[in-house]
Design a binder for these strands. Sequence first.
DNA 1: GATTAAAGTGTAAAACGAACACTATGTCAA
DNA 2: TTGACATAGTGTTCGTTTTACACTTTAATC
Lengths: 227, 227
Amino acid sequence: MPHTYEYPRAALTVDCVVFGFDGGELQALLIRRGLAPFKDKWALPGGFVRVEETLDDAARRELEEETGLREVFLEQLYTFGSVKRDPRERVVSVAYFALVKPGAVTAATDAAEAKWFSVSDLPSLAFDHVDILTTALTRLRGKLTYQPIGFELLPPKFTLTQLQRLYEAVLGEPLDKRNFRKKALSYDLLIALKEKHQDGPHRPAQLFRFDPVKYERLKKKGFLFEI
Amino acid sequence: MPHTYEYPRAALTVDCVVFGFDGGELQALLIRRGLAPFKDKWALPGGFVRVEETLDDAARRELEEETGLREVFLEQLYTFGSVKRDPRERVVSVAYFALVKPGAVTAATDAAEAKWFSVSDLPSLAFDHVDILTTALTRLRGKLTYQPIGFELLPPKFTLTQLQRLYEAVLGEPLDKRNFRKKALSYDLLIALKEKHQDGPHRPAQLFRFDPVKYERLKKKGFLFEI
DNA sequence: GATTAAAGTGTAAAACGAACACTATGTCAA
DNA sequence: TTGACATAGTGTTCGTTTTACACTTTAATC
């Protein structure tokens, strides 16, 4: 059913930069395009915004349709509106960035292939998706140093070493173990569990979980989780 | 000339939160709407994005058309996409925030009335423009403490007291004079001019200007202007 | 030349950040 | 069972930064 307007309108899409962490390097989830333009190229998961859904809803829907991911941390990033960013016609894209925990493996993909890539070793991407990804990476680095969002990339139970490795991977620099632990524990937002994490012939590590309730309380008072 | 698409499309607009500073309180520039919906209500300057212009261009164009402002600091803020934010039809709005210097007084307004309001004493606004304004204010507060954007709200030549008053107005708290001056000067981004600012029966104040060239150099190295 | 009112300046104490090396513990293999 | 292995876990010192705080200077005006 066609729809007619007095003036030409841009098409509106959402694109999601999905970050994951495998314990070593920061990863981004890409899908292989099945259709032209840029057929067979890697691209960010995303698609058209329906006229009766919010932008957030569209991002979540596309993410689930194309990668099977649900209930992930999702935040609006930036809106990309260059005139020629899509060769077919004017397309404005609202970009989101998502953080997913290792458990949430890519399973139910819609049709196209979905794959994790190290952000340090990305393939060439369709459209202006490199720009979007770069913007997301800058944002993630910035946010990580003043908001406790790293936990969104770790399993619910994690060790302090895992947390440190994550920070090191995202920030791209080694951190001092003692200083990191002191700082991470100083906010009293990590709850030590009764369990330990055993992983080879060496001392097992204390497991922690993040306390989101306490964080919400602190956040309202303008709290910063600085590492 | 009508334009037809296979699926319905949202209309795309830009809205600008324009901040100014009169020496006392932080101000926002609003225009009175001449047309329905929300006729005669105050609203943010903004309008439809043309299909052949970028979002930034649209924001600059609308700003000039509706308020006469040109060459202002302008940065994308957030994209608002609630389904019912415009009672007529689906409208997605890319919000911008602008900082203008006192000199750039509102003159050549398109037709509608434009007026400065203290952000602490705003009228009721059209659409979801309060949300947009609140988001902009939060962003401005955040940015001010780690980027030297305050200068965009002051005349090219300013005194340290004027700068401090601006910070106090935006952050909403008094700052210590000596500590503020020490910090502001410590980055070596303020150039003392040969002129003084005389303003009543008391010691005249040293005038400074901001050094944008030096700042650009520092910014590339990941510099933070923290106050 | 006395008054006015804002400009301009330094220091001490406390908090914070950075640098740095050894002990503890469970597993595994000999 | 015992010793080797490999990661977990822990404190202190030193330099820097932040905070708190009060008096002197200066030009204009009366």
